[in-house]
Design a binder for these strands. Structure first.
Lengths: 189, 189
DNA sequence: GAAGTTAGTGATTGAGCACTAACTTACTTC
DNA sequence: GAAGTAAGTTAGTGCTCAATCACTAACTTC
């Protein structure tokens, strides 16, 4: 038995829960499965988080935060075309190495409607605020161009979708999406 | 008590289930709630569909079919810029009048990962096949241009996401997305 | 080394849910 | 109008799962 501080444990729970929620979504994931992945008893999760919803929220916030940081770090000191290229490359890395983060994003977006329906307005607020932060984070380096920003985020959402559906990266549907192709396409215009 | 033929009943079950699954996803939706919406007893659903999964699959297939038809009908007889404009307008109508179809799309994409994890390869195949059909349906009228097709679908996925998150249509984040703005942006280039 | 605190467990509960079985009610056909 | 069939219901079962409770084991501090 490895003892950790509650704070460290909470961290590993968030990591494990990200993977689990990414596949199963909020309702399709049992706290049991998360606990098993962490290597801790199921009731102990409720010492670390007040309830399942709070855990999901923590995971969602982390997911947004990580994505924002990815773009912020990639575009640091760059502008326009260069920033676009850097951010696109950064996202490509996430696709390859952290696909669960993309899936978790979708689970989060989709969970808003369910929460809202049940009178939980707060979750939606959090996610929308996160999206706005994400929006600003890519907007500035792209020269504060609304069209560019929208397009960039749109490609991101398409990528999330293809990953969720399980299209292998070599599949035809990815053709128009690889940064090279995308940026080359833009430069040719 | 209104009696219907099993076939008619199945239709109304699919409609009701679309709304319910759209909000709650597969796991967040009880067959009870679907039955209540249809106005029929919960066990009767299992006379109409072998199990919950089959019902979800039927809803997913219908959702893809409807989307494909929307684009096919909108672009009939048109090409290039005109087809793009027509399909964008058609989708705008769906946003306003059938938002549950967009949400259901996302639920479907996201459900693939969960199904795949549980060894259900079939569901993913169905969804991917549907996506390919959708892809071809917009690809041809857009002049068989891979870049155009990718961009069009990307905007669609972004729209789905914004709808899911519950951003009102007048919100800033929609700015770059209204067909007028989008097409004008393209024309200016 | 005793007292106090923090990390963690095992057993349990009550609710919700997919699905079944057995039965009833309404329409159709001859 | 009796027989057959298709539509629909009531009652119930077994399982899963979030959350609680009462407890133990390991560190910390003096």
């Amino acid at each position: 038995m490895v003892r950790m501080s509650a704070q460290e444990r909470r961290e590993s729970v968030i990591r494990a829960a990200t993977s689990e929620f990414a596949r199963g979504g909020y309702y399709g994931t049992s706290t049991e499965s998360i606990a098993r992945r962490v290597g801790v008893s199921q009731p102990y999760l409720f010492r670390l988080f007040p309830n399942k919803k709070a855990l999901f929220l923590a995971v969602a916030e982390r997911c947004l935060e990580d994505t924002v940081r990815t773009f912020a770090e990639a575009s640091e000191g760059l502008e326009g075309e260069e920033a676009l290229r850097a951010m696109a490359n950064a996202y490509t890395e996430v696709i390859a190495e952290r696909p669960e983060r993309l899936l978790m994003q979708m689970q989060m977006y989709v969970a808003v409607a369910a929460a809202e329906q049940q009178g939980d307005r707060e979750f939606g607020e959090t996610v929308r605020a996160g999206w706005m932060r994400l929006w600003e984070t890519v907007h500035l380096p792209l020269g504060a161009d609304v069209g560019e920003t929208t397009t960039f985020l749109a490609y991101g959402m398409l990528i999330n979708t293809l990953v969720a559906m399980g299209f292998p990266p070599a599949h035809r549907v990815w053709e128009g999406l690889y940064p090279e192709a995308r940026i080359k396409g833009r430069l040719e215009k």
